[in-house]
């Protein structure tokens, strides 16, 4: 699926997400796939660090604070999936140049189920082909988008124990290293 789809001016994306390292990503003509891969690298790194070094350490290993879906009411840590979603929503508030979301074929929250045929296809692909990403182009709302889907893997016990025990989880047999869902990144082609 690693075909070259097209080119993108990535200056805004670079400035938005890559900070000082944006210089190399700001050159005209970067491939959609490369831009999406770089965006995902930042997202997945931050997500893994928060999951391992904050939630798993403090909530599971040291037990000094809990992590809760209702973090305000429970005065608890934000769940890793919520942390990711809040970032995606903040990006959505600030730009239309790209969007991303964390989806699953087995979502606890039904709004995180696939809503487009390509999301469904991509999530199935990364589940059936461990270690591979999915890339494609789809039309949504009259505009064309480059869509990339990356596997979201259970990196810590905090991930799969919560999903296995949650009353709204449609799947309860996750283990460490399993693909639990996927990160979907979209970039408008035009």
């Amino acid at each position: 699926m690693g075909n070259k789809i097209g080119k993108i001016k990535a200056s805004i994306l670079g400035a938005a997400l890559m900070g000082t390292t944006a210089t190399s990503a700001m050159a005209d003509g970067m491939e959609f796939e490369t831009v999406a891969d770089l965006l995902h690298l930042v997202m997945s790194s931050d997500r893994t660090v928060y999951t391992r070094m904050v939630v798993n350490r403090l909530a599971n290993e040291e037990g000094v604070i809990t992590a809760s879906e209702h973090f305000v009411d429970d005065k608890a840590l934000v769940l890793p999936a919520q942390m990711f979603r809040f970032g995606a929503e903040m990006v959505a508030e600030n730009t239309d140049e790209f969007s991303y979301s964390l989806l699953s074929l087995w979502p606890i929250n039904k709004q995180n189920a696939p809503t487009t045929p390509m999301e469904e296809e991509g999530l199935q692909y990364i589940n059936d082909n461990p270690g591979e990403n999915f890339y494609g182009v789809e039309e949504l709302g009259g505009d064309e988008y480059f869509t990339a889907v990356y596997a979201d893997v259970a990196v810590a016990p905090a991930c799969y124990t919560c999903h296995n025990e949650h009353k709204d989880s449609p799947r309860t047999d996750f283990e460490g290293g399993d693909v639990m869902g996927g990160v979907v990144i979209r970039i408008p082609v035009n």
């Binding site: 959505a92 239309d96 979301s101 709004q111 809503t115 949504l140 709302g141 979209r186």
Partner: peptide
């Protein structure tokens, strides 16, 4: 919130 409906994946809605 509006931000939940902005991404193109919500276009059908």
């Amino acid at each position: 919130p509006i931000k939940k409906f902005k991404p193109p994946r919500m276009a059908a809605y």
